[in-house]
């Protein structure tokens, strides 16, 4: 297993100015965790879900506003609240 990488996946080729990006990594004891991250809107409705990469990373293309990230990994579920802005990328580190 590769070590965890801080931050989200590489942004090369992504039109950051026009996207509202939420990204980051999921770790357990600083090691990447294979699992899933859900994106829930301000009403708690499911919007998207991605598996974490081999290095524990994830990324969403959202819209500006408040979101909840929900990490689902074997034996644990962790929620994090974030506020996303267009033209910036919001980095979230989730330790489970």
């Amino acid at each position: 297993m590769c070590g965890a990488k801080a931050g989200g996946p590489d942004l090369a080729g992504v039109d950051v100015a026009n996207e509202t990006i939420i990204q980051g990594s999921v770790t357990r004891n600083e090691e990447p965790v294979n699992g899933y991250v859900r994106l829930l809107d301000e009403n708690g409705e499911f919007t998207a879900e991605v598996p974490t990469s081999a290095t524990g990373q994830f990324r969403f293309f959202a819209r500006p506003g408040k979101w909840t990230l929900r990490a689902l990994v074997p034996g644990a579920t962790v929620d994090r609240q974030v506020v996303a802005t267009q033209g910036e990328f919001t980095e979230v580190a989730i330790a489970v």
Partner: peptide, 8 residues
């Protein structure tokens, strides 16, 4: 598009 995909 779903939020794990680019929006263009």
């Amino acid at each position: 598009a779903p939020a794990h995909l680019p929006q263009e």
